Amino acid sequence: MKRLLGFLPLPCLLLALWLILNDSLSAGHIALGLAIALILSLLTPILRPVRARLSHPLTALRLVGHVAVDIAHSNWLVGLRILRGDTANARPGFLDIPLRIRDPHGLAALAGIVTFTPGTVWAGHDPAHNILTLHVLDLHDPAGLTHTIQDRYERPLMEIFE
Rank of each mutant, 00 (worst) to 15 (best):
I97F: 14
L8H: 03
H56L: 03
T87M: 13
E154I: 07
G112W: 00
D141N: 13
A90M: 10
V114P: 00
L83K: 07
G124C: 06
L5H: 01
P11N: 10
L21F: 15
T115Q: 00
G65S: 03
H147M: 13
D126Y: 02
R81Y: 06
L5E: 03
F161W: 15
H105L: 00
T120M: 09
D96K: 11
L10T: 00
M158Q: 14
S74D: 04
V67L: 14
L38P: 05
R3F: 01
L107E: 01
R84P: 01
P142S: 08
T117L: 04
L21Y: 14
P57F: 10
F7Q: 00
I20W: 15
L61N: 08
L80H: 08
A109V: 06
S41L: 03
G6M: 07
H56S: 13
N89S: 13
S24N: 12
F94E: 12
R102Q: 13
D138Y: 03
L80C: 05
L38Y: 07
A37R: 09
V50W: 08
L61S: 14
V114K: 01
L15H: 08
P127D: 07
G144F: 12
V50R: 15
A60Y: 05
F94A: 12
A128R: 11
P142I: 06
D141M: 05
L10A: 08
I131R: 13
R62C: 05
A31R: 14
A27S: 13
N22P: 00
L13W: 15
A35T: 09
V121Q: 04
M158W: 06
L99P: 05
P45V: 02
T146Q: 12
R100M: 02
L157M: 09
P127Y: 09
L34A: 15
A108D: 00
I149K: 04
L132I: 01
L10K: 01
D103W: 04
L99C: 07
P104W: 09
T120C: 09
V136L: 03
D86T: 02
F116T: 03
H147V: 11
G144Q: 09
P45M: 03
P92K: 09
I101E: 01
L58G: 14
L21E: 12
G65M: 05
T133H: 06
Q150Y: 03
N89R: 11
F116H: 07
R81D: 12
D103F: 03
P98A: 03
L80A: 01
